[in-house]
Simulated assay, not measured.
Amino acid sequence: MKYIFSSPYYLNKRATGANKRFERVLYELQDKYDIGIVVAKGEVPLDVSPSVTLYEIPLFIANRRLLTFIYLNILYLYFSLFKNILISDFNPIPVSMFFSKRQFQLIHDTRIFDNFGRWDKLSSMFMKFQWKHVKNKVVVSQFTKDRLCKELSIKESSVIVSYNGVLPSDFDVSLNKDKAIDLLYVATFEERKNHINLIRALANIEERLIVTFLGKDLGMKAVIEEEASKADRHQITFLDSVSENELADLYQNSKIFISPSLYEGFGMPILEAYAYGCKVICSDIFVFHEVLGSKATYFNAEEVSSISRTIEESLSSFSNFKDQKVIVPNHFHWEVISEQLISDIDSLLFKKV
């Protein structure tokens, strides 16, 4: 029995949460199970094992969503004929996934319920319809599962929670090293990430801070940079893209990691930042509590004064934080996550046979 992971828009040189998940699960499972992957031509993960079966989508198809959808409908139907198990994150969802018990739709977040999606009303309605009727789902947090089941009246038994995580090798044991960056925020530049309120909070802080923003522009960067010019007492750096090693260096060289995001499906950067030894301060939203619990400090992301006050208090108490030990629960380790995903899928299929 083959487990096939499909991510047609995976990019092997961009460090996003979705891309990291695809890679980490693959690397943990590829030498233990019969694994296949579906990716665009030329986007095979760098450390893939020779034992993995590759299904590469030709570029002239992969660059066009409609052609990709048609191609995947045929490919996924082929998979179903051989009783392969498929986990796919492609939208719109190919038809075979509505009928095959062995095919699972991976849902990274449910932001369409909060009007933070990049889809028009008709597209959102269509996506909700697909999510409701696809046979099985995999989501990355209990928060996402609860929201999905509540909004669409979905049976809880059809939804598997499979967390995102970190590698034990990510854990920074040298918390006492000098850290040059006062404040780091890793997030795409879009409305829900709430950069504007963060910058307005910085404008209220008298002490000069070294601040780094890292993220891909999804339409808001120019507005955010203009707002940042009003907080010119601080040294604010904008970065578009870095390698995994460079990202690790940013985490390790930062005192405070902040996330004022208004919505997340999981929030991988706060977990990574904590693992690398940052003090994490973040929005008081349910999913962040699910990920870090008492290990983070929370603020009201809609109140500028709450953000600025938390930044100042966290910086002033950072010397005490440096002595704390990093402890990441096992269920956020990629090895555990990957094995649990296989176990949960097998259990669900066994119950449905």
Rank of each mutant, 00 (worst) to 15 (best):
residue 117 G to K: 05
residue 117 G to Y: 04
residue 119 W to K: 12
residue 121 K to Y: 11
residue 122 L to C: 06
residue 123 S to E: 10
residue 124 S to V: 11
residue 124 S to L: 13
residue 125 M to C: 14
residue 129 F to M: 15
residue 132 K to R: 12
residue 132 K to F: 07
residue 133 H to W: 11
residue 135 K to G: 00
residue 136 N to D: 02
residue 137 K to D: 04
residue 138 V to N: 03
residue 142 Q to W: 14
residue 142 Q to L: 13
residue 143 F to A: 11
residue 144 T to K: 01
residue 145 K to Q: 05
residue 146 D to R: 09
residue 146 D to A: 07
residue 148 L to S: 01
residue 149 C to F: 02
residue 149 C to T: 06
residue 150 K to G: 10
residue 150 K to V: 10
residue 151 E to C: 06
residue 152 L to A: 15
residue 152 L to S: 11
residue 152 L to D: 11
residue 152 L to Q: 14
residue 153 S to E: 15
residue 155 K to C: 08
residue 157 S to F: 03
residue 158 S to G: 06
residue 159 V to C: 01
residue 161 V to N: 00
residue 163 Y to A: 11
residue 163 Y to P: 15
residue 164 N to K: 13
residue 164 N to L: 13
residue 164 N to V: 13
residue 168 P to T: 11
residue 168 P to D: 13
residue 169 S to L: 12
residue 170 D to N: 15
residue 173 V to R: 12
residue 174 S to K: 12
residue 175 L to M: 07
residue 177 K to N: 07
residue 177 K to I: 06
residue 178 D to I: 08
residue 178 D to N: 09
residue 180 A to S: 12
residue 182 D to I: 02
residue 182 D to K: 03
residue 182 D to E: 05
residue 183 L to D: 03
residue 184 L to C: 08
residue 185 Y to Q: 02
residue 186 V to L: 10
residue 186 V to R: 09
residue 187 A to H: 01
residue 188 T to C: 03
residue 188 T to W: 03
residue 188 T to Y: 02
